[in-house]
C-alpha cells in the first residue's frame, strides 16, 4: 500500500478537518442494564463501550490489598472492529493497553474508600478508527461516575500527531498508520494532572510542547462534553 497524502494543498486532512479540529463525538451513560455503571463513546468512527462492576468482594482473596481497592481492567477489541478480522485472543498490544488503562483509572479513583475490595472495568472496542485507548478511558471514566464510585475527576483525553510534518489533533486511522508521530494525552482537567502520556514516532522537543498545548485545548472541549453527557441524564430531574 502506498502512503497517501495526509495534508492537502489547502491544509485540510484526509477527512476534511483542519489540523486543530476534533472529530464528531457522541457519549451516553447508563447504556447497560446489568453493569453498575456503563458508557458508550464515539470519536469519529471509533466506537467503544465500557462497563463497571463493583466495588465488590475481591476474588481471589489473596490478591486483595489491605488498605485500598484493587482494579481489574480489560481492554479488548472485538474481532469485527478492524478491517481485517482480529482474533479474539488477547494480543500483546491489548495487554499493554489494559495495563495503561488500569493505571490511569487508578489515578482517578478514591482508592482508600474500599479496602480489600475490587472494581472491574471492562471495555470492548466495537469499531476501531484510531484513538481507541482514549475513547476507552473516557467511557470507563463516565462508567465509574455512573456507578457512583467516587473519583477525583473525570478523565478526558485526545491524541495529537504529526501528519506530513503538520501537528494534528485527534488522529484518524490513516494519520495513525502513515503519520510521523502519535501522542495520546489524557488529563484530569480540574486537577491539572496529566494521567496518560505516550508517544510513538518522532517529535522535536518543540513539537512535543506545541503538541501538548494542542492536546490541552482538545481535552477541554471533550471534558465539557463529558459533563454535559452526565447532566443530560439528570436534566429532567433537576428542579427549576
Amino acid at each position: 500500500m502506498q502512503k497517501p497524502r495526509l495534508i492537502s494543498d489547502d491544509g485540510k486532512r484526509t477527512d476534511g478537518r483542519r489540523p486543530d479540529e476534533l472529530r464528531q463525538m457522541k457519549m451516553e451513560v447508563g447504556v447497560l442494564k446489568n453493569a453498575d455503571g456503563s458508557a458508550l463513546v464515539e470519536m469519529g468512527n471509533t466506537k467503544v463501550i465500557s462497563a463497571v462492576f463493583g466495588p465488590k468482594e475481591m476474588h481471589p482473596k489473596h490478591l486483595a490489598l489491605p488498605d485500598r481497592v484493587a482494579i481489574r481492567a480489560r481492554y479488548h477489541m472485538t474481532p469485527f472492529s478492524t478491517d481485517e478480522r482480529k482474533s479474539p485472543a488477547p494480543t500483546r498490544r491489548e495487554v499493554e493497553i489494559s495495563k495503561i488503562l488500569r493505571e490511569t483509572l487508578e489515578s482517578s479513583v478514591i482508592l482508600e474508600m474500599f479496602p480489600r475490595a475490587e472494581i472491574d472495568v471492562f471495555t470492548e472496542v466495537i469499531q476501531a478508527d484510531a484513538g481507541t485507548r482514549l475513547a476507552s478511558l473516557i467511557a470507563s471514566s463516565l462508567a465509574l461516575a455512573d456507578a457512583g464510585i467516587p473519583i477525583k475527576d473525570l478523565i478526558a483525553g485526545v491524541a495529537v500527531g504529526k501528519a506530513d510534518g503538520v501537528l494534528v489533533l485527534d488522529l484518524n486511522e490513516q494519520e495513525d498508520m502513515w503519520g510521523e508521530a502519535d501522542m495520546p494525552v489524557a488529563m484530569m482537567p480540574s486537577m491539572g494532572q496529566v494521567v496518560l502520556l505516550q508517544l510513538n514516532g518522532t517529535m522535536s522537543s518543540d513539537e512535543f510542547r506545541k503538541g501538548l498545548e494542542m492536546a490541552t485545548k482538545g481535552i477541554e472541549v471533550i471534558y465539557n462534553l463529558e459533563k454535559e453527557t452526565l447532566k443530560k441524564k439528570f436534566a429532567e430531574y433537576s428542579e427549576e
Binding site: A145, I151, K152, D153, L154, P189, S190, K227, S238
Partner: peptide
C-alpha cells in the same frame, strides 16, 4: 440543592 458532577 445544586447537582454536582465529579471534578466540579
Amino acid at each position: 440543592r445544586a447537582i454536582v458532577y465529579p471534578g466540579d
